[in-house]
Amino acid sequence: MRKPEADPEIEARRYGPIPDKIDPAIEALVDDIIGKVADKWTMLILEALHENGTLRYTELRRKVEGISQKMLTQTVRRMEEDGLVRRTVHPIIPPHVDYTLTPLGDSLSKAFCGVWIWAETHYDEIQQARQAFAAARSGEVHS
């Protein structure tokens, strides 16, 4: 994943004071978005569109290896519903459909780039922890 520039508004708020009260509507939206975006396919579609710009349906399916036609359709519809993706249908025969990230989708992609950078930065530590956990588990008595 290419490393996009940080969103200055998000960065300014990230280091600002923590609010005293959390708006329940915002909390519900965050839970909903995390539930959708944490999905493997959503993340891969987000990444493919961020890296490649506008893609036709068939190109998008090729970029997101292993996704079924049904799952791709369902996922881009959810992303479109949330305003993350713009779907453009060209009225030709056969129909030609393009997908591109909206500015909102692009900003989400930038936000999740931090997860990529975190994983890259801590890769060795995570691998060591997993190996230690597996070694400890293999020595346990299983009932």
Rank of each mutant, 00 (worst) to 15 (best):
K40S: 07
I67F: 04
G66I: 07
I10S: 05
C113E: 11
A119V: 12
T88M: 05
A132I: 03
V85C: 03
P19K: 02
G35F: 06
Q127E: 08
K3M: 07
K21D: 12
Q127S: 04
E47P: 00
D32H: 14
K21G: 00
Y15K: 12
D106H: 09
T54K: 10
H96C: 07
L29D: 05
E120F: 10
R77C: 00
D82T: 02
H50S: 13
T58Y: 05
L101N: 04
V89L: 14
D82C: 01
I45A: 03
I93R: 13
R62T: 10
L49D: 06
D31V: 09
V30P: 00
E65T: 13
A135S: 09
M79A: 01
T54M: 07
D106C: 00
R86D: 08
P24T: 04
I26V: 15
A119Y: 07
M1I: 06
I67S: 02
G83P: 06
R2Q: 11
E47F: 02
L84R: 03
D98I: 00
Y15E: 11
G114Y: 11
G114D: 09
D106K: 13
R13F: 10
P91A: 08
I92T: 15
P8C: 08
D39F: 02
W116T: 14
R13A: 14
P8V: 11
T102F: 02
I45S: 02
A129M: 12
W116K: 10
I22N: 03
L46R: 10
I22G: 02
D39M: 05
E125W: 06
G66D: 06
I26Q: 12
P17E: 14
C113P: 00
A28R: 15
A48K: 02
G35K: 08
C113H: 15
I126T: 13
T100F: 00
E47M: 10
A12C: 03
V85K: 02
A135N: 12
G139A: 15
G66V: 05
I33L: 15
I18Q: 10
Y15R: 14
A48N: 02
R2L: 14
I126Q: 07
R56L: 07
K3G: 05
D82W: 12
R14L: 14
P17M: 08
G105L: 06
I67H: 04
I45L: 07
M43Q: 14
I92P: 03
L44N: 08
T100I: 08
E11N: 03
H122Q: 10
A111S: 07
R61D: 00
E65R: 15
D23Y: 09
R61S: 04
Y15I: 13
I117V: 15
R56D: 06
P4Q: 03
P95F: 04
T88C: 01
D7L: 12
L29K: 13
P91T: 04
A12F: 04
W118H: 12
E11W: 01
E80Y: 05
